[in-house]
Amino acid sequence: MDPLLEQWQKDYKNATPKLDTAALLSQITSARKKQSIKAWFDLVAGTFVSLFCIYALIFEATSTPEQVLYAILTPLPIGFSIWAFLKRKKLIKSNILDFNALLLFKKQQLINQINYWRLNLIGCSILWAALCITAAVSVLMYNHSTIWLIQLGIGTLVLILTLTRYLYLKYHLKGKLNYIDNLE
């Protein structure tokens, strides 16, 4: 073997940072426990809220629109919990991907993030428009201004924050994708 490489191998081994393995083990055991508790909590909470929606649909809803509302709401919490669970699994699997596959995965994550915030923005915009119409009707016809103005203010703030986040991510997306491309 090349003597220089041999010397570097020796130097590299000697450059091992100081390790407190007992502390490391204790930290990751605790971190893993927390992750596990969080995963179970997400799943139980999602199931509980969905079950509550079913209860409300059967015993609490007094009109058809209410029943429709609860029927639409029922699958959402449990669906979100399952999505989060599958996402965790996918993330764990990414640990054993090949280098290029990992970079592809990272690029897809960035694109998914943009799509997620775009959808969020569209949803917020629709809700904000609906809120504006409802507020206008309420203020003009029934003179209930304060509560609607507060709601409109909160809605506008949420919309601005969502828009800012989306524009920020969109602005930086190309640079991030180029950076990953350069690693390949």
């Binding site: 010397q7 570097w8 130097d11 590299y12 000697n14 450059a15 091992t16 940072p17 100081k18």
Partner: peptide
């Protein structure tokens, strides 16, 4: 600098290790 590097050899060796990392 990697101040906490473990070096078992001489000072010169330590410098080499720092440079390598």
């Amino acid at each position: 600098p990697l101040l906490d590097l473990v070096s078992t050899d001489s000072h010169q060796h330590s410098d080499n290790t720092y440079d390598l990392m």
